[in-house]
Amino acid sequence: MIAINYRDPKPIYEQIQAELRRLMLTGALPPGSRLPSVRELAGQLAINPNTIQRAYRELESDGYILSVAGKGSFVAQIDQLAEQQKKQAVEAFRAAAQRLRALGLGEEELAALLAQEEQTDD
């Protein structure tokens, strides 16, 4: 479920965080569902439990998950978070497009870039 890339220089807790975030935002882990316990994940991935705890802690302070004492961690109602992220991404995309235009890229070239992106996405 969670893939750790050992060649990625990013710290493991950030990778775990990013993977879980991806699973939650795509709905693979829907709001209300229980996340694997720290112990389960530590065993499954052979990763230090404190590292996993750290990833969970940061996800909680970012509002992605909720911890219930004695019961575990659950996915929060993140629809709004997803909306917000989408907005941010769209803004970043607009800014990039404006810069490219300023650098002399035409409408067609931009469209071609987008089409290329779609292809590599699959």
């Binding site: 112990r39 052979a46 990763i47 590292t51």
Partner: peptide, 29 residues
């Protein structure tokens, strides 16, 4: 995986010597 489940489940304290630093990065805190 077995050792780290013990760490998470029972608070086992582990000291490990190794030259495999890549591996230690996953295992150690």
């Amino acid at each position: 995986s077995l050792a780290l489940e013990d760490v998470a489940g029972y608070g086992t304290t582990v000291l490990v010597s190794s030259h495999n630093l890549r591996e230690l990065e996953d295992i150690c805190d």
